[in-house]
Simulated scan of single mutants.
Amino acid sequence: MKRTHWMLAAVSLLLFFGLAAADWAAAQGRWRQEAERDVEEEGWRAAHSAELTEQEAGRGEVAPGISIFAGRGTMEMMRLHDWANALIQQAAEAAGSSRFSQEEQFQTMRFTVRTVRELLRGPRSGSGTLDLNGLKFKAGVLERRGRFGRLFVPYVALRSAAAQKDWRRQDSVPWQQAPPSSAAPQQQEQFFPDASADPLNAFRLTNTARQISGDRWEWTAFIDGPAPFLRRISSVTYHLHSTFNPSRRQGDSSRLGHPLTAVGWGVFLLRADVTLDDGTRRSYEHTLQFQ
């Protein structure tokens, strides 16, 4: 009888770990698709490295046998440079760009290594951008969380100046008229509080939204205000409902108003922490609106 109990327990454990592994693999695939979609909004064309577990990211292992912390002048450093250059070449091909000079290739490679190294020291997500004579280059790390842990995906991306103009709103067109991804944007009345002295008094948190299925909405939250003051924002941290994972997210610093786009089915009280270039901060609240 005892042997039977042990056998049942062993089978149950195998089933549990088998289902857990399948669930984890499915989550990895889903997160990677989400990561690629997040990066490739706004005209970017990206190349993604393989997913890293939290342990691998902490050790800086961006690929088997390749560490972001490789010593200068070593074979490991050469392999690291090859890894970065391969990603950059993939992104260039995706963007249809063949205008990279040898100096630009070296510059983007060093920028990629430096950016990813600093992010994986956390490890944390984030990105940095670099201007390249009519091209915009971005390197970063995406993070996804789940009940089995965290995944980190290093990536690089390119965007032409023409694509950037298509996605970026001009100063004369207020953000609330439409985020670029909205197929049927909802107009909102332009409104700025007191803009006389303190830029933080001139801002408000607001959103646009569009219905994408029965009860699913794609919404974009952003900071609204006069363009000269919006340019002084260095970062916006959004605090979403606890059902979002992660619930704390950074706005897109490459766009005026630092927008954030997400998909959900219910409204909630959104909070945004705004930091200016002089370090001053203020929090704003706004209840999402889908109508």
Rank of each mutant, 00 (worst) to 15 (best):
G146N: 15
G146M: 09
G146R: 07
G146D: 12
R147N: 11
F148R: 12
F148I: 06
F148D: 12
F148Q: 11
G149C: 06
G149Q: 09
G149S: 08
R150K: 15
R150P: 06
R150M: 13
R150D: 12
R150H: 12
L151P: 04
L151E: 07
L151Q: 10
F152Q: 07
F152C: 06
F152A: 07
P154A: 14
P154F: 14
P154M: 12
V156P: 07
A157H: 08
A157E: 08
R159G: 08
R159D: 02
R159K: 14
R159Y: 04
R159T: 09
R159H: 07
S160P: 03
S160H: 02
S160D: 06
S160M: 03
A161C: 02
A161Q: 13
A161E: 14
A161I: 01
A161K: 02
A162K: 09
A162V: 10
A162T: 11
A162R: 11
A162Q: 11
A162F: 04
A162E: 15
A163R: 08
A163C: 02
A163V: 01
Q164N: 10
Q164L: 05
Q164F: 10
Q164S: 14
Q164G: 10
Q164M: 08
Q164W: 12
D166V: 02
D166M: 04
W167A: 15
W167M: 00
R168V: 03
R168F: 01
R168T: 05
R168N: 01
R168K: 07
R169E: 01
R169S: 08
R169N: 03
R169D: 02
Q170R: 14
Q170V: 10
Q170T: 10
Q170M: 09
Q170P: 01
D171W: 07
S172G: 00
S172E: 11
P174Y: 07
P174W: 14
P174H: 08
W175A: 14
W175V: 10
W175L: 14
W175N: 14
Q176P: 00
Q176Y: 06
Q176E: 15
Q176D: 02
Q177V: 13
Q177M: 13
A178S: 04
A178I: 00
A178W: 01
A178Q: 02
A178F: 01
P179V: 01
P179K: 01
P179A: 15
P179I: 00
P180E: 00
P180W: 00
S181W: 14
S181F: 05
S182F: 03
S182A: 15
S182E: 12
S182T: 02
S182P: 00
S182G: 01
S182M: 14
A183D: 04
A183T: 05
A184H: 13
A184Y: 08
A184K: 09
A184D: 08
P185E: 03
P185L: 03
P185W: 03
P185Q: 04
Q186S: 11
Q187S: 13
Q187P: 06
Q187W: 11
Q187F: 14
Q188E: 15
E189T: 11
E189W: 05
Q190D: 13
Q190Y: 12
Q190H: 12
Q190K: 08
Q190N: 10
Q190P: 06
Q190I: 13
F191P: 04
F191W: 10
F191G: 05
